[in-house]
Amino acid sequence: MDPTPNAAAIPIRVFVVEDQTKILKNQLRLFEGHPDIDIVGTALSGEAALVEVERDQPDVLLLDLGLPRMSGIDVTREVKARFPKVEILIFTIFDEEDKVLEAVKAGASGYLLKGATVDKIVEAIKEVRAGGTVIQPNLARRLLRHFRVEPDTAPVPTEPLPVAPSAAESAPAGEEASAHEPLLKPLSDREREILQLIAKGVSNSEAARLLSLSKATIRTHLEHIYRKLEVTNRVEAVTEGIRKGLISV
């Protein structure tokens, strides 16, 4: 759903989870003087985070993966199960790509490398709060390889698949259902174009700039894509797009 006209004036409620006190203090110091961000709470462990998140109801959770006892991946899975509206942005280091992959599969909306500038962090927070995803291209490619259904495991039928009359009548010219798997509501050319950009790891802001559209329009198109593909996030949308033969990688 698009934000209300005065939504930009409302600070994004952010909760930070980091087990090292010194790093946590440095992170909090970064946000001083940024009126768009409201730090509503912090936690030094995953267990404490679950208790505090329920109380504070943040918009975005900045989460360190390397937590003691309860891992960041487990926290991600639990938070998304209990508080699905909370967006999760992972803080990671260079050698944690496998863990980041697991966190994204568990429901995280993206990740940032520790040491990122405050402007980059704030931009990422705004991106995931608006329904976007913050994933670097190298990890996006790994995600696609992980979720991709190879041709020999998903044979394409030689005969055209039947399309229900209602779907055929409502489909724009050239938008027939894919031979891989029929779509009840085919994606428009613009939706396929946006889905292809998503597969390349492009953010909402970048997609808006490339297509000369507003970010609100991109979000609306994404909502339509998710609904038509019966998914809830970008990773699932790209996976389904590949599986149904709607996009190429």
Rank of each mutant, 00 (worst) to 15 (best):
A8M: 05
P11T: 05
D19Q: 11
T21Q: 14
L24A: 14
Q27N: 14
R29F: 09
L30A: 08
E32L: 08
D36F: 01
D36L: 06
I37H: 00
I39Q: 03
V40R: 12
G41H: 05
L50E: 13
V51P: 00
E54N: 10
E54M: 01
E54K: 14
D56S: 14
D59I: 00
L62H: 02
D64R: 02
L67T: 10
P68G: 06
P68E: 06
M70S: 00
M70F: 08
S71H: 04
T76Y: 06
K85W: 00
I90R: 06
E97V: 03
D98N: 07
A103W: 03
V104A: 01
V104G: 01
A108G: 08
L113H: 09
G115I: 12
A116H: 07
T117E: 14
E127G: 04
E127F: 05
V128L: 07
A140M: 15
A140I: 12
R142H: 03
L143N: 03
R148P: 00
R148K: 09
V149A: 11
V149H: 09
P155A: 10
P157N: 03
P160H: 06
P165V: 06
A171F: 01
A177V: 09
S178W: 12
H180Q: 13
E181C: 04
L183T: 15
K185H: 10
K185A: 11
L187N: 02
S188K: 08
D189L: 09
A199I: 09
G201V: 04
N204Y: 08
E206C: 03
A207Q: 10
A216S: 15
E230F: 01
V238F: 03
L246I: 12
